[in-house]
Amino acid sequence: MDMILSSLPSLASGAWLTVQLVALSLALGLLLSVGVALARLSGSVLLRAPAVAFIFLFRSTPLLVQIFLIFYGAGQFAAVRDSFLWPVLREPYWCAIIALTLNNAAYTGEILRGGIQSVPFGQIEAARALGMHRLLLFRRIVLPQAFRQILPAYGNEMIQMVQATSLASTITLMELTGAARAIASRSFQPVEMFVIAGLFYLAMNFAIAQAVRWGEKRLAHAG
């Protein structure tokens, strides 16, 4: 019992790091995914082809390979080590954020594409007929409805992201899984540590699921 109590502070700081990784990479990933989805739907091949390739590459390879390529792989090149990017790419924290953000943007971009395509074309025609500018049309008509459409799928993606952050422990970050593992390897109660860490994860997922349900209800009223 003492062991469990004394390990709580480092588990809690691990949980805090997990929350940071989740929040930052979800926010950046969502921003990037709007660009990815738009490029993917663009009429121009120059925009569409890179988006298709990006989505394909990041969804067909394991996240762990992506993390290792960015963290270990990038540092192999002197050009990278001498560039302004090095202060960022040498930090495991930012490498994890970059990998998680890119991975998330690929999955969310594909979800968002479906959402954007689900907006009835008549509405876009109507907005155009009213003389709406392309950006305004996108911001007021397409995006809000696309988000409402994808909310359940996006909720699942958020929960997947919470779990994906555990891979940051493979590049020395002491997030929740890493912290639990570190304590487990030097205590005689390894199982308890993982159970406590698991409860943290379940609590985070529960919070996300509740938030998504609340969001669905709220957005349903707007329609």
């Binding site: 929960i159 919470v162 779990q163 994906a164 952050t165 555990s166 891979l167 422990s169 899984t177 639990a180 593992r181 487990a184 390894p190 993982f194 860490a197 698991g198 994860y201 379940l202 997922n205």
Partner: peptide, 9 residues
């Protein structure tokens, strides 16, 4: 609900 990595550990 928990990461696969946690299950492995």
């Amino acid at each position: 609900g928990v990461p696969a990595l946690l299950v492995i550990w």
